[in-house]
Design a protein around this nucleic acid. Structure first.
Lengths: 309, 309
DNA sequence: TTGTAAGCGTTATCAT
DNA sequence: ATGATAACGCTTACAA
C-alpha cells in the first residue's frame, strides 16, 4: 500500500513534470512578492544629465560594482534612469510600490526629489556620493576636497606660478568639493579670475574652458581640470594653441578614467575606485536589509602621477 | 439623514485622508500587478563585455532613446545587466516571473541564453541589432555590411593603395558584417594579411592593431577601424610612429560617437543613430503589446566625412 | 452613489 | 507526509 502509493505518486510526478514542461508553467513573481512581502530586487537610480551617460565612464564601473555584490546575495539589480520630471515621478512610484527592497542612488543633487521620496517611505537606501541638502542616508563616497587639495599641491610642487582651474558640476558635491580643495591648496595664490566654471564634466567644457583661461591669462602655466574628460579637452586646446604639455603648462585631472591613458602625454590624475563605490553602496543597502546600521564609508583615493605635469 | 450621512462621510473622508498622510499609505504594486496581470514595465537587457560598458557611448544613447518612448507610453524602463552566468539565470527568472510586460535586448550574441528564454516564454520583445542564430524576434538595426562597404569605398576613392582593417567583435553581427563590407569593397585588392582581429571595440585594440599592421606592412596608407574607439587608438599609434594623418595614411571609423570629434584630425566615420535604434526597438515592443505585428526596421546610416581621410 | 465579495497566484499554517 | 485553507493587497463586478 505504501509502495503502491509511492508508485502512484512517482507516476503522477512524472506526469506533472511533463505537463509543466509542455504547458510551460512559470511561477508568478507578483503573487510571490505579494505574499512574501519582498521582491529580492534593488533599484539603482541614475540621474545624470543627458550627455554624461556617454562621457563619464565611472557610472559603468559603479553599476558593475553594485551588481556584483547584489548578485552574490541573490538580489536582482534593476537600473532606473531619470531623464525628465515624468521619469522622476514614475520612478518614485516604482520604488514606493514595493517592487524593490532597497535602492542605491547615484549622482543625486541637492534637494533631489527621488532621494526625498526614498527617505519618506523609509526604503533602505544608500547614496554614491553625499550631496548635502539630501536626507540622512548612508553613503559611499570619496573625499573630493582632500583629493583635489592634494593633487593641486603636487602640481604647485612642480614650480608653477600661475595656475587655474576648470571647475564643473558645481550643483553637485563632487564639483563643489573639488573647487574647495583647489582653493585651499592655492591659499594666497588663489585668483578667482583663473577659475572658469562649466555645468558638466565634459570634453567640450575642457576645450572651451582652456581657451577662455588662455585668453584671460596667457602666462598661465598650470591647470587643474575637474575631471579627466575636462582635462583631455583642455590638453587639446593647449596643444592647438601651441603650448607644450607639460613643459609650458602642467595639467592634472580627476577620476583616472580611460581618458587618462588616452591623452598624450598621459594624465596625472586622482584615481577614484568607482567599482568599489558601487559595491560599497550596495553593501550598505544589504546591511540595512539585515537590520544593521549601515554607516557611511569614505574610500581612499590615490594620485596617479604621469606625464602631463 | 442623507445630509447627516454626507456630513459623516465628509468627516470620515477627512479623517481618512489625514490618516493616509500620517501613516503614509502607498498602494502595493505587487498586488496591483497580480490582479491586473500586467506590470507596465519593460526590461532592457544589457549583455556587454565588462569593458565596453565604459568605452561604448552607443549604449547610453540606446538606453535614453528607449526610455523616451517608453516613458511617453507610461511604461517604466528597467535595465538589467548581465555580467555572469548567475546573472543570466536570475534575469531570465525575472523576465519569466511577469515582472515586465516586454523586453528589449541589446548586444545579444549568437545563441544568447536570454534571447532563447524570452522567445520560449513568448514575451513581447525586440532586439537592437540582429545577430543570427537568435530566435525570430523583430529588431531595429542598421546595415553594417553596406555602411562598411560604402566608407571603405570612399577611403579607396582618396587614392590609397594598401589599405587594411582593424576588425573587432567578430562574435557579433556588427563585427562580422563590418568585416564583410570591407572585404566586398576591397574586391581584388583584399589582402588577408592586412586585417587584424581583436575581441572588443576598444581604444587599446586600435593602438595594438595599428602597431601590428605597421609591422606587417610599413607601406600601409589606409585603415578602416571597426569603431571610432578603435580608430582613435589607431590614430594615436600612427602619430606615435611618425605618420601623418591623413597625408601618409587615411583612417576611417564607425559610429560617429564622441570619439570622432575628439581626434585630431577629426574622424571620417559612419554615423549610426543610436538613440533611434533604442527608441525604435522600444516601439517594436509597444506594438506587440498592442497586438500589432512588429516588423523589423533597418535604419539609415550616413557617412560623416571629416579630416582623417 | 456606496458598499460587499470574489478572485488574482502564491506561500504558510493548520488539520488530517 | 499530505492536503485543504487563509492571507497577502488590490481591482472589479455586482448588489444594495
Amino acid at each position: 500500500m505504501v509502495n503502491g502509493e509511492k508508485y502512484v505518486s512517482e507516476e503522477a510526478r512524472q506526469a506533472v513534470e511533463e505537463a509543466i514542461a509542455q504547458v510551460g508553467y512559470v511561477r508568478n513573481s507578483a503573487a510571490r512578492n505579494l505574499v512574501k512581502q519582498e521582491s529580492r530586487a534593488i533599484g539603482l537610480i541614475i540621474h545624470e544629465p543627458h550627455s554624461l551617460l556617454f562621457e563619464d565612464p565611472n557610472i559603468g564601473s559603479i553599476l558593475l560594482g553594485a551588481n556584483e555584490v547584489l548578485s552574490k546575495a541573490d538580489y536582482q539589480l534593476v537600473s532606473l534612469i531619470i531623464d525628465s520630471d515624468r521619469d522622476s515621478r514614475r520612478v518614485a512610484d516604482y520604488l514606493r510600490g514595493g517592487l524593490v527592497d532597497g535602492a542605491v542612488i547615484i549622482s543625486a543633487r541637492a534637494s533631489d526629489p527621488i532621494a526625498a521620496a526614498v527617505a519618506e517611505i523609509g526604503l533602505p537606501a544608500a547614496f554614491v556620493g553625499h550631496p548635502d541638502g539630501t536626507p540622512d542616508l548612508p553613503y559611499a563616497a570619496i573625499n573630493n576636497e582632500e583629493a583635489a587639495r592634494n593633487i593641486t599641491g603636487r602640481l604647485l610642487g612642480t614650480g608653477r606660478q600661475r595656475v587655474g582651474m576648470i571647475a564643473s558640476a558645481l550643483d553637485r558635491d563632487s564639483g563643489q568639493d573639488r573647487l574647495a580643495g583647489f582653493r585651499a591648496a592655492m591659499g594666497g595664490k588663489f585668483d578667482p579670475a583663473l577659475v572658469v566654471e562649466y555645468p558638466l564634466y565634459t570634453y567640450a567644457a575642457g576645450l572651451e574652458g582652456m581657451q577662455e583661461l588662455l585668453r584671460r591669462e596667457p602666462a598661465i602655466d598650470g591647470v587643474f581640470a575637474a575631471s579627466d574628460a575636462v582635462a583631455a579637452g583642455a590638453m587639446t586646446a593647449l596643444q592647438e594653441a601651441g603650448r607644450r604639455v607639460p613643459e609650458d603648462v602642467g595639467i592634472v585631472g580627476f577620476d583616472d578614467s580611460s581618458w587618462a591613458l588616452r591623452c598624450r602625454p598621459q594624465l596625472s590624475t586622482v584615481r577614484q575606485p568607482a567599482d568599489l563605490l558601487g559595491s560599497t553602496a550596495a553593501e550598505l543597502v544589504l546591511a540595512q536589509l539585515n537590520g544593521l546600521p549601515g554607516t557611511p564609508r569614505v574610500l581612499d583615493t590615490t594620485i596617479m602621477w604621469r606625464g602631463s605635469a
